[in-house]
């Protein structure tokens, strides 16, 4: 039983951290300010910037290979209640990394978790989905419709 609960909690945390990392730092900050809280926290690590080596697969699905690196920033915070939060995101936005780590720590409290998901994570997911759908429709408009020319031999 404990195992399945852990799994669900993991999955929720994974989704939240992924959605936050994929969002623009300015958007996170704007939503964070709407939350209207200012928890005291201690930086355990970072925010620090480093590199992630990026891997692809030969032929798309074969053996992995390194095809470059990307900048990434990570942070770890501890709240007054002892909760530890982590973050890792592409880019060099330190404030974003710090905010994500704080949100990760805060979300370990069930009441805070639903508030964060509702007020920050879901709006970010929605705007990403909207951006994707806009891009998809712009790409779809460049799809080639082939038609066959009928040769006028008669």
């Amino acid at each position: 039983m404990q195992g399945t609960e852990d799994k669900a909690a993991h999955a929720a945390r994974q989704k939240r951290l992924s959605a936050l990392a994929s969002a623009d730092g300015r958007d996170i900050l704007a939503l964070w300010e709407k939350l209207g809280i200012d928890p005291a926290c201690e930086m355990v690590r970072g925010p620090e910037t480093g590199l992630i080596a990026l891997r692809g697969r030969i032929g798309g699905g074969g053996a992995p290979f390194n095809f470059g690196e990307a900048t990434a920033t990570r942070a770890t915070v501890r709240l007054e209640n002892g909760a530890i939060g982590h973050s890792l995101t592409l880019g060099r936005d330190r404030l974003k990394a710090k905010l994500i780590a704080i949100l990760d720590a805060l979300a370990q409290d069930a009441a805070m978790e639903s508030k964060i998901d509702e007020m920050i994570v879901r709006p970010l997911q929605a705007s990403l989905a909207e951006r994707d759908s806009k891009r998809r429709s712009e790409t779809a408009a460049t799809k080639v419709d082939f038609f066959t020319m009928v040769r006028g031999d008669d």
């Binding site: 910037t49 992630i52 080596a53 891997r55 900048t71 990570r74 891009r135 998809r136």
Partner: peptide
Amino acid sequence: LPRFGYSEPVDTAKMQV
């Protein structure tokens, strides 16, 4: 810069084309 590690291989089949 320090190296944090290696990513999982990117999945180009799931690309936002």
